[in-house]
Amino acid sequence: MVNKDAMEPFTTAFANAWHLIWTADADLMGVLALSFQVTGLAVLVSCLIGFPLGAILGVGRFAGRSASLVAINALMGLPPVVVGLGLYLLLSRAGPLGVFGLLYTPTAMVIAQTVLVTPIVAALTAQVTEEMHREYRDLFATMGMGQVQQAATLLWDGRFALTTAALAGTGRAFAEVGAVMIVGGNIDHVTRVMTTTIALETSRGELALALGLGLILLVLSLAINAGVMGLRNMGMRLAHG
């Protein structure tokens, strides 16, 4: 191996990535659209569950709160493959939820990513709201607010901090491959997303193409994060002063 060739996969990867984007490759666009659809929906559902759940854990004073927090924090580190496997056993035709025929559908992938992302959103929300609650607790008490009202107030007041929670969840969902591979099946034009495409191209030995797709994934992740953070900062200037 000569040294000149050592960088060759990387230059080829850039060229591949550029070519796919420049030509608006139809397959790539389809795969990207599905990636956005699945991850977007999963993060949306995760936020709808995780925000209230986290806020209740953040402000609530009830038996089992600490245990729930420990559990949620542990679930954050759940390996995607385990989630995929567990869901496969549930959604499989032979499994308890088999009658719904969800295995190998985008819906199954949304469910898998929701399971992965919800603990992240909930745990970060609990952290944010608990911190704010320390500041607001006395005020809430003098106003005679119930726990649900308190949670709702904290969610709205913590909305900018909570975008970070949603972004962290998006990152995990967008980059995750183990779970969607198992429950989605990586079926061409049906359940093939960016990460499973990368895995497939790697298994075909098309390393430069896989790396090129990885570059596109990275750039898109960066763009999403930069966009959301920009919006967040703009909103924060308007609301917090």
Binding site: S92, G95, Y104, N186
Partner: peptide, 19 residues
């Protein structure tokens, strides 16, 4: 035709689960 390409052993097990 939706192809789930997983390797023969896994494919046989998935098929036994009716998937």
């Amino acid at each position: 035709v939706r192809v789930v390409a997983v390797g023969t052993g896994q494919a046989l097990r998935n098929a036994r689960s009716c998937d």
